[in-house]
């Protein structure tokens, strides 16, 4: 009862945030949507073009592929790393955390230029590959190079939610599983991993959605022939001044993101059934 009262009396505190959201999110977003269907006249031509101009769809597909590759790579690297963080001494954990955070605190531009130096033709990576007998491995200006650099940029967004989830899993459950007949590997896959799903979903969503709209790294490390959605958007707004077409493309990316978040919510819904406040709603027949 008292919490209800507090909720009612506290709502004016939300006004600044609501005003901000309306001013900088809802109004421009509405405007973009409106422009995308009303320029030059009321039409869905801008959306139709995305699917028919032969370029946009390819770029969109490439963007989704790279975002998926980055997400998968970040998960494969980030999960063991976050797991290690939960298993070491507090001191070592601090060091591991700083290693994740230092790049996070460093300017994205600085990191991208560093990647250019590392990946460029004649750079250290190419030399290492040459030593291993693989000549002329070209990463600079390719989707592979973009994927590598983006993975490094995105890693903190995967590691941090995973770390907080993995750290909160009761490890005594693993002992219980061992006692019930599971090998250490079986206990991990049947008990620990399913319980970490919330962190996996959070990390995947963060990295994937951020990767979809990533501009700097592909612009600096990729090639114009292999541009991604963000580059296409930049081109249409700053060079072609075709705001309606850019708006339509932006809307499509937004829809892709929303679908993903909805999926995450459903996963999250399953998670809350596991949590302390289990509702019978999820179990209704």
């Amino acid at each position: 009862m008292s919490s209800n009262k507090m909720r009612l009396s506290g709502w004016p505190l939300l006004l600044p945030a609501l005003a901000l959201l309306a001013g900088i999110l809802l109004v421009p977003l509405g405007r973009t949507l409106l422009d995308s269907v009303s320029e030059p006249t009321w039409t869905l031509k801008n959306y139709e073009n995305i699917f028919t101009d032969g370029v946009t769809l390819t770029v969109l597909g490439r963007t989704v592929m790279i975002a998926a590759a980055v997400t998968a790579a970040a998960l494969l690297i980030g999960y063991p790393y976050a797991y290690l963080m939960t298993r070491v001494s507090p001191r070592a954990r601090g060091i591991l955390l700083v290693i994740v955070l230092i790049p996070f605190w460093t300017s994205v531009m600085a990191r991208n230029f560093a990647w250019i130096i590392i990946l460029q033709n004649g750079g250290p990576v190419q030399k290492v590959f040459a030593l291993l007998g693989a000549d002329h491995v070209v990463l600079y200006g390719t989707s592979a190079g973009v994927t590598i650099a983006m993975t490094q940029v995105m890693l903190p967004f995967m590691v941090l939610p995973l770390f907080s989830t993995l750290g909160s899993i009761d490890r005594r459950l693993l002992l219980a599983a061992r006692g019930l007949g599971s090998s250490p590997t079986a206990a991990f896959w049947k008990v620990f991993f399913p319980l970490s799903r919330g962190g996996v979903v959070a990390g995947v969503i963060l990295v994937f959605t951020l990767s979809l709209g990533f501009y700097v790294t592909p612009a600096l490390l990729g090639s114009p022939q292999q541009s991604l959605v963000a580059q296409l958007l930049a081109q249409r707004t700053t060079q072609l001044l075709d705001f309606a077409a850019a708006g339509a493309l932006g809307m499509v990316v937004l829809i892709v993101t929303l679908v993903l978040v909805a999926w995450a919510n459903r996963m999250g819904g399953t998670m809350s059934a596991i949590g302390v406040v289990a509702t019978s709603r999820t179990k209704d027949r």
Binding site: D170, R172, L173, L175, A176, A177, R178, G179, L180, G181, S182, S183, A186, A187, K190, V191, P194, L195, I274, G275
Partner: peptide
């Protein structure tokens, strides 16, 4: 190792698997 000793164990903190139903928990071993 513990998983080959075939002993049942009951803990003070229950140690039930939160992501499984009652039946799934009991079926686990």
């Amino acid at each position: 190792p513990p998983h080959r000793r075939n002993l049942g164990m009951l803990f003070q903190h229950y140690a039930l698997f939160p992501h499984m139903t009652v039946a799934q928990n009991v079926a686990y071993p």
